[in-house]
């Protein structure tokens, strides 16, 4: 196991339903993650800027408003534009099945919907971040 996993938890867009984001942030903190929660109404530009400045391993976006396609697309595009390829973009909320293929195509990781047990996303984050760190190290050698 490497260094502590740093994750940025964000509420993008106009939606104010922050219960899920806050519960996940608390759960990850208690599970030993370093959590940066930036609060409401984060634009994709702000999210990507914070991700780079805070040098995070992952970004978790909480979206309940139906704007997930627009938001995930902008965030993944901006990361690519900045040349940031190692940061995992994941998240959760109300995301219909029919949109999942489009999100996968954008390079978004797994998304977690209501009713998910915390052990499930914690395990996913550990495995996926670990895999990406090893890939990055291998590429740097």
């Amino acid at each position: 196991m490497g260094a502590k996993i740093r994750i940025l938890i964000c509420k993008p867009g106009l939606d104010g339903h922050d219960r899920g984001a806050k519960v996940v942030a608390s759960t990850l903190r208690d599970a030993g993650f370093e959590v940066i929660y930036t609060g409401l109404r984060q634009s994709p530009e702000m999210i990507v800027r914070d991700a780079i400045q805070e040098d995070v391993d992952a970004i978790g976006l909480s979206v309940h408003s139906g704007a997930h396609l627009t938001i995930f697309r902008r965030v993944t595009e901006l990361l690519a534009k900045e040349g940031v390829h190692h940061v995992l973009v994941t998240g959760g909320g109300i995301i219909p099945d029919q949109d999942l293929p489009k999100l996968v195509e954008m390079g978004v990781g797994r998304l977690f919907r209501p009713g998910t047990k915390s052990e499930e996303y914690i395990a996913y984050l550990r495995d996926e971040v670990d895999r990406r760190r090893r890939e990055r190290e291998a590429a740097e050698v």
Binding site: G13, L14, D15, H64, S65, G66, A67, L69, T70
Partner: peptide, 22 residues
């Protein structure tokens, strides 16, 4: 919808992707 709740017109930058959604 959220743009209306937040006092934005449907054609505002902040409204992108959110018009008529919830």
């Amino acid at each position: 919808d959220l743009p209306t709740l937040m006092g934005y017109d449907s054609d505002a930058t902040f409204a992108e992707g959110e018009v008529g959604k919830c």
